[in-house]
């Protein structure tokens, strides 16, 4: 299992569209993917789960990847977070 810390960087936070791009990306990989925030953990491949986080700009998320392609998955997912989902950061 791989664990990573990420921060929400785009201004609008993890709203519907970024949530959709996140789960779409996650669905391409075989590994299981969980996101933890405020002590609760949800499945990162579930759009409803990701939207439940209601993560605003600046909030920190703990990611867990587990499975054969966990390395590539972690790299791709962390990159998506680092780019602020391609949205404005300020």
């Amino acid at each position: 299992m791989i664990e990573r810390e990420v921060t929400i960087r785009n201004r609008a936070g993890l709203h519907t569209r970024p949530a959709a791009s996140l789960v779409k990306l996650a669905a391409k990989f075989k590994a299981e993917f969980f996101i933890e925030k405020d002590g609760f953990e949800i499945n990162g491949k579930s759009i409803i789960g990701v939207m439940t986080l209601a993560a605003e700009q600046g909030s920190k998320l703990h990611l867990k990847f587990s499975g054969e392609d966990e390395e590539e998955m972690a790299r791709a997912v962390v990159a998506l977070f680092d780019q602020g989902f391609g949205e404005p950061m300020q």
Binding site: S46, I47, I48, M51, T52, A54
Partner: peptide, 15 residues
């Protein structure tokens, strides 16, 4: 949860 309530995702259809 209070955000999601009784929403559901159906693959290919959406929320």
């Amino acid at each position: 949860t209070d955000v999601v309530k009784h929403f559901m995702e159906i693959r290919g259809l959406g929320l």
